[in-house]
Amino acid sequence: MPQIEQLAATYSSQIFWLLVFFGFTFFVVGRGMVPKVMDTVAQRDKQISDDLIAAERARKQANEEEEAWRVRENTNRAEAQALIAEARTKAAAATEQRLAAAQSVIDTKLAEAEDRIAEARNSAAAEIEDVAADATRDIVSRIAGLSLDDAAVRSTVKENLVHG
């Protein structure tokens, strides 16, 4: 077993070189580099937790803003609805008013037209009576040689016209 057989010859070399290389490892790697690696890890962990906190805060803020927006939106909608309703009633009233005005104009025009028609009919009827009385008198004077009283002819014609 070389570990025991060579012990006397090699122990000092083993101890010396182990202390040299383990010492180097401890001071350069352990003391020099490991704290930097650990520091990086700690920094990353801190950054992650900070980011998480910031994200949580942003989420809360977003929620609050959404809530505020919702409230604002609701009032806006209600206002808009009120405006629309008001506009609708106003428009309906205006339409009614205008319709009524138009109706009255139409009514007066209708009445006027009816008057005119009645007048025209009357004057036409009078003219027809005149023409019929004249024609009757002419026919009677030519055929019977009678000269009839104008008023008598007219009343007879009127009677006949009325009774057909």
């Binding site: 010859a9 090699t10 000092s12 070399s13 083993q14 010396f16 070189w17 182990l18 040299v20 290389f21 383990f22 180097f24 490892t25």
Partner: peptide
Amino acid sequence: NIAFTNSALWMAIAT
């Protein structure tokens, strides 16, 4: 004695 042995060499390699 502090001879640089094969053992010391592998300590160096590990380091």
